[in-house]
Design a protein around this nucleic acid. Structure first.
Length: 277
DNA sequence: ATCGCCTCCTGATGGC
DNA sequence: TGCCATCAGGAGGCGA
């Protein structure tokens, strides 16, 4: 499931291919995946536009910048894929949009579960979009400090796991990296956010930065559907310490990893290393 | 503010 | 072998 490291990897892999290419036609197989504007206008606006050198990302949103102040905003949600490939490449099932480029190649959007969305907006308005303007700090930007965590965590009466998944608190974490960060910080997912000690908050800050950084270095976690902008799998799934490891031995203490539901989400943790208190 | 619950959707899995 | 229920989880919406 694409979280920050997966989305960042997609952006980086697409960036190097798309820069300078012009959209020559758009095939909207499933117009429902376009959030805005209307399908006809979406196509009309894109035709003849050129991808810029610099792409972007905010939280889990992919920002593909084009000429004439346009940005194609893509959210992959659970199973979305954005892939640059040969026009002759076999069409994978659930391909919903095909962009033909002026070098003869394709940019394709595919999504088994059809939760993902594409949106074409003026570049100057991207940061004001609903869903983007509410986002909390980027974990790898200077604004995400130890002090931020310490201070903000106390304002919330919820448990720490759902808070980490709240995109308006921190942008980009999903179920996998949230569990991995909590394990590294030795914090139980059901601990009340406001009751973490200063030391624990600092450890959590460090753990989030580390796990996100390592996730990017390994080009993401290919647990089920995720591949990058060229259809290649990542390798961070080989380095997960708790996620999807129920009953497997903890890498720290050897006891079996537990799995519980927290706010409706599977949460994997080590009951010995991460005490409930 | 925070909760649970629901919806979107398909494929994988497990019980019988 | 098939049939059905359950689960996966990102985000947004609902009412409590």
């Amino acid at each position: 499931m694409p979280e920050l490291p997966e989305v960042e990897t997609v952006v980086r892999s697409l960036e190097q291919h798309l820069a300078g290419l012009t959209v020559t036609s758009v095939n909207l197989i499933k117009p429902e995946v376009i959030r805005s504007p209307k399908p006809e206008e979406f196509i009309e606006l894109l035709l003849g536009k050129t991808f810029l050198k610099k792409m972007g990302r905010r939280g889990k949103y992919i920002l593909l910048n084009l000429s004439e102040n346009l940005t194609l905003v893509v959210h992959l949600r659970m199973t979305g894929r954005l892939i640059y490939c040969d026009a002759e490449a076999p069409l994978e099932k659930h391909t919903h949009v095909i962009f033909l480029l002026d070098n003869g190649k394709h940019l394709r959007f595919a999504d088994v579960r059809r939760f993902g969305r594409l949106q074409l907006v003026p570049t100057t308005e991207v940061m004001e979009l609903p869903g983007i303007k509410e986002l909390g700090p980027e974990p790898l930007e200077p604004e995400f400090t130890r002090e931020f965590i310490k201070k903000e965590i106390r304002r919330h009466r919820t448990r720490i796991k759902p808070l980490l998944l709240d995109q308006s608190f921190i942008a980009g974490l999903g179920n996998i990296y949230a569990d991995e960060a909590l394990f590294r910080a030795k914090v139980h997912p059901e601990r009340l956010a406001s009751e973490l000690t200063s030391r624990e908050a600092a450890a959590l800050h460090k753990a989030i930065v580390e796990v996100i950084t390592e996730g990017i270095e390994h080009r993401g976690t290919s647990f089920r559907d995720y591949v990058d902008g060229e259809g290649r799998a990542g390798s961070f799934q080989n380095h997960l310490k708790v996620y999807n490891r129920e009953n497997h031995p903890c890498t720290q203490c050897g006891r079996p990893i537990s799995r519980i539901k927290v706010a409706g989400r599977s949460s994997y943790y080590c009951s010995a290393c991460q005490k409930a208190k």
